[in-house]
């Protein structure tokens, strides 16, 4: 298993000076019958960058990702992927493992869909499970795993497909703080080593700053639009906890907070929880 972005990996070599855009969203509007909950969203995710999209709950962050995955039809706007659809990995908060399949079968599922022979898919699944600290857990069913272990299986399921672009929607929100910090760090290590391109959707400012190269801020609904885009000036590789001690962390947190809260629209309640 090549552990770094080396010759074994076709996606990574010779990164161009101006990074290509792996995800380009233009003029995206999404609504559920009524007025659009997000309106005219532009968003670029460049190759090798970790981009976070932050916004209050119900602002339609999730809807943007659901449009990208093809699970939701937009009212208007376009989504262009700079990679082939099989090279996109998705990790969502309510990702469910198939309860009737073992951890190994769940991880192997995406590989099997891509016509990897069963024995090979199982071997690769076991490899990814042990990478995520779940060696020997391959025969367990999801009901026999803890919440953190299930989330690791879900991560293994996605990473086993070697995606070039990873889209995440508050993937660790349901986990307790300790497990969450640990898994975030593991994932961040992997992303840094593989120069993986990531779009993370979250409402947690500290998580966004700790992990990202840049942060896009989505405003309040109704008709939420992009507010700002801020670069994160903290060197890599990062330690999720130590990043919070970096001198740039505090001021950026303040800036993002202001971006999020300024010009409160009169009735944000009208947007409701339509984002889910």
């Amino acid at each position: 298993m090549p552990s770094t972005a080396g010759p074994g990996r076709p996606a990574a070599p010779a990164r161009p000076a101006v990074p290509e855009t792996l995800l380009r969203v233009r003029g995206l509007s999404v609504g559920f019958g009524g007025p659009p909950i997000i309106d005219g969203i532009d968003l670029d995710v460049r190759a090798g960058q970790f981009t976070s999209l932050i916004g209050p709950s119900g602002s339609g962050k999730t809807s943007i990702l659901r449009v990208v995955t093809g699970l939701l039809e937009p009212l208007r706007g376009t989504v262009e992927l700079g990679v082939a659809p099989p090279d996109v990995g998705f990790l969502f908060q309510d990702d469910a493992l198939l309860p009737w399949r073992t951890a190994r079968q769940n991880v192997a599922l995406g590989l099997r869909i891509r016509d990897v022979p069963p024995a090979d898919a199982d071997a690769r699944a076991d490899h990814w499970l042990s990478r995520l600290g779940l060696a020997g857990y391959g025969d367990r069913f999801p009901a026999q795993l803890s919440g953190g272990q299930r989330k690791r299986v879900a991560i293994a399921q996605v990473l086993a497909l070697r995606p070039r672009l990873l889209l995440m929607d508050e993937p660790f929100a349901a986990l307790d703080a300790i497990v969450r910090t640990r898994i975030t760090q593991e994932l961040l290590d992997w992303v840094e080593r593989e120069h993986l391109t990531v779009l993370l959707v979250t409402h947690d400012l500290e998580e966004a700053i700790g992990a990202s190269d840049n942060v896009a801020v989505l405003g309040h609904g109704p008709r939420a639009a992009m507010r700002a885009r801020r670069a994160v000036d903290i060197p890599r590789p990062r330690d999720v906890l130590e990043a919070r001690q970096h001198p740039a962390f505090g001021p950026l947190l303040r800036t993002l907070w202001n971006d999020l809260t300024e010009e409160e629209p009169p009735s944000p309640a009208a947007a409701g929880e339509a984002g889910r």
Binding site: T69, P85, L98
Partner: peptide, 26 residues
């Protein structure tokens, strides 16, 4: 049937045949 499972299999690239085998039948 659990919508999340259907969406999961679809985002992993599974089509109708995979959905029937992995989600609907079980």
């Amino acid at each position: 049937v659990d919508r999340r499972l259907v969406e999961r299999v679809r985002t992993l690239g599974g089509g109708r045949r995979v959905l029937v085998r992995e989600v609907y039948v079980p």
